[in-house]
Design a protein around this nucleic acid. Sequence first.
DNA 1: TGTTACTTTGCAATCATTACAAAGATGAAA
DNA 2: TTTCATCTTTGTAATGATTGCAAAGTAACA
Lengths: 136, 136
Amino acid sequence: MIEIKNIGEYLKVNKIMPSVQRVKIFEYLYTKRNHPTVESIHKELIDEIPTLSKTTVYNTLKQFVEKGIIQIINIEDNETRYDADTSTHGHFKCIKCGIVYDFLFDNSDIKINGLDNFDIHQTHLYIKGICKNCKN
Amino acid sequence: MIEIKNIGEYLKVNKIMPSVQRVKIFEYLYTKRNHPTVESIHKELIDEIPTLSKTTVYNTLKQFVEKGIIQIINIEDNETRYDADTSTHGHFKCIKCGIVYDFLFDNSDIKINGLDNFDIHQTHLYIKGICKNCKN
DNA sequence: TGTTACTTTGCAATCATTACAAAGATGAAA
DNA sequence: TTTCATCTTTGTAATGATTGCAAAGTAACA
Ligand SMILES: [Mn+2]
Ligand SMILES: [Mn+2]
Ligand SMILES: [Zn+2]
Ligand SMILES: [Zn+2]
């Protein structure tokens, strides 16, 4: 994942005006790296920014996705998660504790059968199971 | 994907009472293989079964998932799709026409880095891009 | 200060999904 | 055939996530 020294600058470079709310939301995604939902981002930041609207969280995340600085992670159908790491990597969700872990894999290892002449834009790989800490 | 001659029998074997609605819903998933949403299943069957409730579609699909005869496909965050093919295979969604294609891949090719001592239950791979027919 | 453009907020609307209780169907026992 | 128990479906209301939109707020600048 890329190194970012100044989040305000990073947003500007990506054509996003760095308002207080946007900087805090990106900072949360970037530093925690815990694949949060809208709900958990809002819950976490409401203390620092008591006026923060949930609509703003939605608006901001949508803009970040459009500008390509975060990605959406769909594992469960009832929770959309977000990730400031847009590099190709996989996700493991533990069905016991609910934590979403990152893992690495080599895209070029996967031999795809049946998509000749298809243009591939994004590859998503996720796994469900039991994490090391939840076994016994 | 497995061969099924009699859907009613197949449901019974899997401890599901084969009501008219359940047989029709499974038949739709099994024969069309188009990864439909609840909405499209309901829309398609309402002519044949004019009293069919959307609740019944939800109930039935949830039961099928619990019994393991269908699987959920999460590609977009706003549409849950269902698949009667529960074997390990990948999905390609065309961002132009919206069609979800199946493709094959070999699970054992993927070398995963960072999940030592994790128990893997399910592996999901999906790709987004432009399908052959939409490239002109 | 006044103007403009952009951002955030709050609330209402929409859409997907679930909960629940009433009504309907099935099938075996009497 | 009637009765009874059980399972299934239906309709509606409730919930929860997400979006639309207009009003209020902010920042830069002439
Ligand atoms: Mn990640
Ligand atoms: Mn499939
Ligand atoms: Zn765990
Ligand atoms: Zn297409």
